[in-house]
Design a protein around this nucleic acid. Sequence first.
DNA 1: CCGGGTGATGTTTACGTAAACATCGCGGTG
DNA 2: CACCGCGATGTTTACGTAAACATCACCCGG
Lengths: 327, 327
Amino acid sequence: MADVARLAGVSSQTVSRVSTGHPGVVEATRRQVLDAMQQLGYRPNSAARALKRGEFRTIGVILFTLATTGNSRTVEAIAAHAAQEGYAITLIPVAVPTQDGVLGAFTRLGELAVDGVIVIMEVHLLDVAHPTLPPGVRVVVVDSDAGDRYPVVDTDQADGARQAVRHLLDLGHRTVWHVTGPAESFAAERRALAWRTVLTEAARPLPPVERGDWSALSGYRAGLRLAAEPDCTAVFAANDQMALGVLRALHEQGRRVPHDVSVVGFDDLPDAASYLPPLTTVHQDFAEVGRRCVQGLLAQIRNTRAEPGTVLVPTRLITRASTAPPP
Amino acid sequence: MADVARLAGVSSQTVSRVSTGHPGVVEATRRQVLDAMQQLGYRPNSAARALKRGEFRTIGVILFTLATTGNSRTVEAIAAHAAQEGYAITLIPVAVPTQDGVLGAFTRLGELAVDGVIVIMEVHLLDVAHPTLPPGVRVVVVDSDAGDRYPVVDTDQADGARQAVRHLLDLGHRTVWHVTGPAESFAAERRALAWRTVLTEAARPLPPVERGDWSALSGYRAGLRLAAEPDCTAVFAANDQMALGVLRALHEQGRRVPHDVSVVGFDDLPDAASYLPPLTTVHQDFAEVGRRCVQGLLAQIRNTRAEPGTVLVPTRLITRASTAPPP
DNA sequence: CCGGGTGATGTTTACGTAAACATCGCGGTG
DNA sequence: CACCGCGATGTTTACGTAAACATCACCCGG
């Protein structure tokens, strides 16, 4: 910076003013400084800036994996909106979804150059980490029921599941079987709860729950068991991948979809429209979730205020070819 | 830090030594300092550290999208290995895959707190950005043919495609049809080239190429056209998603897979084993790609040397139920 | 018993930037 | 015509850390 100032014949403070876009620099001077910068290949040092300003213009994202579509799409949206606001995003992967792993991530967080964090994680693990959350670090949580303690952004899982189950009942099915996700998943829990509630309110029999782990393979195994139930005519899978597995199991067992059995998924993966048959599913707006996260976090950073509460992003049912009236 | 030093009754330099784990601090003193840190909730300021050290311990990752499985899995692996080496990773999304978008990302890069970048991008776009690449920034490129100018890490696309095509020929198919990816994709280009080479070397007829855009829907459209070719008995799709679309198209047109037509994909998505039928495909080791990227970049950062050249990560064919001898 | 060495700790300084305050010159007004 | 005010620019300083150098106490061998 000093070199630039010397070459441009001004003080380093003026260079600073130009590089930060501050007003109060006359056009001719500004031009000179810009020329000097160009000529010397000057680049502001972000470490020094952060040190001086006391902020990093960076948001951390803590998550277990990018392997699920939901997470990677959400992160992508977060990155895009953060960039738009002049913030960079730093990925903080938690190697193993255990208490130790989470604790490690939150401990590292203290040394990390971030002004706030977005946590994409089940809340019971967050509880463990809470005590080590560095003071002054703003947080927004995704996919959690911690709305009483943190600002939470979430898809309206319950409403999506309700739409799915009602759609099947409306088609005339007597009841709906459910393939749920792993026990520790809050999202899975809420989808299952909504499924149960709709059936109970409609006074329908409540079939036993099949449990999967989100993977297509676990859906396949659940599907094999469901195919063995002669009176199972409608299945609501807690995500599209498991629905894919269910489709394969039913097909292999000679149960035609949607003629014999109807299947509904959740997520609306881009590929779901190309399954055999194209899958009726609940669409999630991950981009909107990411946008709301950034918005909520920046509001905190700028106002120095955290308001707990949950922002719900709506879902909608996409009807394709995997559902029909019962035989 | 000064407060900690005061409370522990030592100098700030000793606090620094403790917090960086430097030797030459007696155990009793160390303990005292750690206690004081704990008590005051001291956290080292990473901006000041970066300023003093002249490095950020951060790696930037420039990419267009996390929406493709390959990218998100690679990024995940990069993040995991970087974390292991004490590096954080910053995502630099390029909003639009145009020259302007790329230029913007590389310009921002100069102000970003990174010691090096991993670029997951087609090379011809990189060329545009090259002039603006800040000097002193180390680069590793993924999925590119820039091996003569940059260190490149890549999956052995050509060998994977060769394995796929040879597998189909070995089954007795007279020739193999190909659904390729978008024209600007270097990966798609190499897979197509290998397909063409194997057919030519085996003196087989070369059917016209069907072009898709990686999506299942584009694969479906290509599949409809292929289903209309009575002598098409074997299809090599350049990725699994397009293969999924091909499967649906063939099924809808009454061509049975694998009885009438064999299909091979590329990527080995986790879901590919649950397609109808389970897909024979080429497995890519994204985790290894990520690992090599980090390794290569850190080598540069530590040695201050860049050696252009390409590291190839092997692929292997996974044989499932979508391929069989011709009818 | 003394000098040299060694290991533990303290002091000084600089990293690059931007806020706060200081200065300078010019135009307008009483 | 002198002074006020304001806009443009310069000077000083501090952000938190760690390298380089300085100091000090103690131990060992001659």
